[in-house]
């Protein structure tokens, strides 16, 4: 942890955590720190720039997939619609933790974009029902909200400040969604294709780690290696299962092992967040 960094870069420092837009300014009351080296500054900048690129791509990807989904539903092209739906899910999986720092809560975003008990007939879950249970045309009812979501996502993203440690915390949250809402309590209850979310979230988490890699390598290479190893283990576990598997086709022990690996990964990303706290590029997402 770079304790006294705020002294030298106070103008840039808005928060050391970054998942929430309005967090207290970092203070410098603990151990004396050091001025970041040029390499560290460059790595911090790389972390935020690279993560921001992923986020912007995901936001664009979400909008594109929703447009494709709309077209495919109108044409009655089920296979194309399923592809677009899965891609939109994947984009949302990456954006979800970022949005949590915005104006609305996770419950609201999930309600609006995924669909929940309050928002039956809405969101990607309503599309899923139309795609896998039919009729396809039922999916069209959910489209206006999904299309409107694009600009709202951007508003959510605009409000959020990004810091390297915040990138790590976002992975804790992404993995939390994976554990508590996908593995423990299936998300795709009609198609039973929870593997789509599992793979998308792990892919997004890898993107987050890659963004942090140069900085973590300078600051805490041991923790970086441990975190990378955990992610590799999760990927290796899932490589044994065809990506098109339904939930029931994924053996119970694989789910259980994945759950345990995810808990360890959450812990490791939490530690990494602490190691790189204080390094800042002061950038907003969008």
């Amino acid at each position: 942890m770079l304790a006294a960094l705020a002294l030298v870069t106070s103008a840039m420092l808005l928060t050391d955590c970054g998942t929430t837009a309005h967090m207290a300014v970092r203070t410098t009351t603990t151990i004396a720190g050091k001025v970041p080296s040029r390499a560290e500054q460059a790595a911090a900048l790389f972390a935020t720039t690279s993560y921001r690129r992923q986020v912007v791509q995901a936001a664009e990807g979400f909008t594109t997939s929703v447009t494709e989904l709309d077209g495919a539903l109108r044409r009655g092209d089920r296979q194309a619609a399923i592809r677009a739906w899965a891609a939109a899910q994947g984009s949302f999986d990456l954006l979800r933790p970022v949005l949590l720092g915005g104006p609305a809560s996770s419950a609201t975003y999930d309600g609006q974009l995924l669909g929940g008990s309050k928002t039956r007939g809405k969101g990607l879950h309503a599309i899923e029902r139309a795609l896998f249970q039919g009729p396809l045309s039922d999916g069209l009812a959910a489209m206006p909200d999904l299309k409107a979501a694009g600009p709202q996502l951007v508003i959510g993203l605009f409000r959020t400040i990004i810091q390297p440690s915040g990138v790590a915390v976002n992975q804790v949250h992404a993995l939390g969604f994976l554990a508590d809402h996908v593995i423990a309590n299936a998300q795709e209850r009609v198609s039973h294709r929870d593997l789509i979310d599992v793979l998308a979230i792990l892919h997004a988490v890898r993107g987050g780690l890659d963004a942090l890699r140069p900085l973590a390598n300078l600051v805490d290479p041991t923790q970086l290696a441990k975190t990378s190893r955990g992610l590799d283990q999760a990927d290796a576990l899932l490589s044994m299962v065809p990506a098109s598997s339904t939930d029931a086709q994924v053996p119970g022990p694989v789910w259980a092992r994945l759950g345990r690996l995810v808990a360890v990964l959450q812990f490791d990303f939490g530690q990494l967040a602490g190691s790189i706290a204080g390094y800042s590029s002061g950038r907003y997402y969008a």
Binding site: D16, C17, T19, T20, M23, A24, S165, V169, V172, H173, L175, G176, A179, D180, A263, Q266, F267, F269, G270, A273, G274, A277
Partner: peptide, 12 residues
């Protein structure tokens, strides 16, 4: 969701 909470930095 205790695993997520306990992996979240104290300041957050």
């Amino acid at each position: 969701n205790l695993s997520t909470w306990s992996s979240t930095p104290l300041k957050v």
